[in-house]
């Protein structure tokens, strides 16, 4: 089907003898917001790391935007259009906001191989525009990340993914460490993405948030997908039952056994 943006078939990852992820079959359509839930160590982050090629999968097939892909590293995945906010924020503490936004894909004033001259002005202007677009308020984006609060850092990380026209955005627990107001701001950014029709995979432990923001919930347990639930057809209790292992959807029963 043409409107499937990402599809994984039999995605598997072993760390030595540990089967962190087994035979994960997953798909997400254009414009769809899908939540991934599951207990700690259920394989959620591992799943994301295989898609974004931060790690190389043990086996399985990934189809992105209609083509089978084998990314060699996160830059490959990013160039193909997958933007990720990682659980560990992936920001450089001693650099400022616009440096971080453009880390690894700096705007260049004058091309000179590795010694290409940076276009600071262009990057700052683009940063200002990006922060406005996403509604992120940061008092001074010339400030270095180390002097910022957890919420501000998170907003920078999310603004980074929202700045670049991505085909798929992935957020790994974006509000885990945030206060009420900060969480609301992050959720607003997510809604902006939804309005713009940009697909999103959201990893979260927050049931209210998931029910608020997502169309579909995929539950991981012990490295396997055990449920694929439409939001309208489920509720919090039901999802918890899948997470804890009280329930397993029939089509996944064999895998979870």
């Amino acid at each position: 089907m043409a409107d499937i943006i990402l599809k994984t078939e039999g995605l598997t990852k072993h760390y030595g003898g540990v089967h962190a992820l087994t035979n994960a079959n997953f798909e997400i359509r254009k414009g769809e917001h899908v939540a991934i839930m599951g207990d700690n160590g259920a394989g959620k982050s591992t799943f994301v790391r295989q898609i974004t090629a931060v790690e190389q999968r043990t086996s399985g097939k990934i189809t992105f935007d209609g083509k089978e892909v084998a990314f060699e590293g996160p830059l490959d995945a990013r160039e193909a259009g997958i933007e990720t906010v990682f659980q560990t924020l992936a920001l450089a503490d001693h650099l400022d906001v616009s440096d971080n936004l453009f880390l690894g894909r700096e705007k260049i004033l004058f091309k000179l191989g590795p010694f290409s001259i940076l276009d600071y002005k262009g990057m700052r202007e683009a940063t200002r525009a990006a922060l406005q677009k996403t509604g992120v308020k940061i008092p001074n984006f010339r400030n270095t990340i180390q002097n910022m609060s957890g919420g501000q850092r998170q907003c920078v990380a999310i603004a980074r993914t929202a700045t670049f026209h991505s085909k798929l955005t992935i957020m790994d627990e974006p509000t885990a460490a945030l206060g009420v107001q900060e969480t609301a701001q992050v959720e607003n950014i997510v809604r902006t993405l939804k309005e713009a029709g940009e697909p999103l995979i959201l990893i979260s432990h927050n049931m209210r948030q998931v029910m608020d923001l997502c169309d579909r919930i995929v539950v991981f347990r012990r490295g396997q997908i055990v449920a694929n639930l439409k939001k309208e057809e489920t509720d919090g209790q039901d999802v918890v039952a899948y997470i804890t292992g009280a329930k397993t959807q029939p089509e996944y029963a064999e895998a979870a056994a």
Binding site: E79, D93, L103
Partner: peptide, 11 residues
């Protein structure tokens, strides 16, 4: 500053 971040940023 953050080697893991640098790597994830594609450096």
């Amino acid at each position: 500053s953050n080697e893991a971040a640098a790597r994830m940023s594609g450096i």
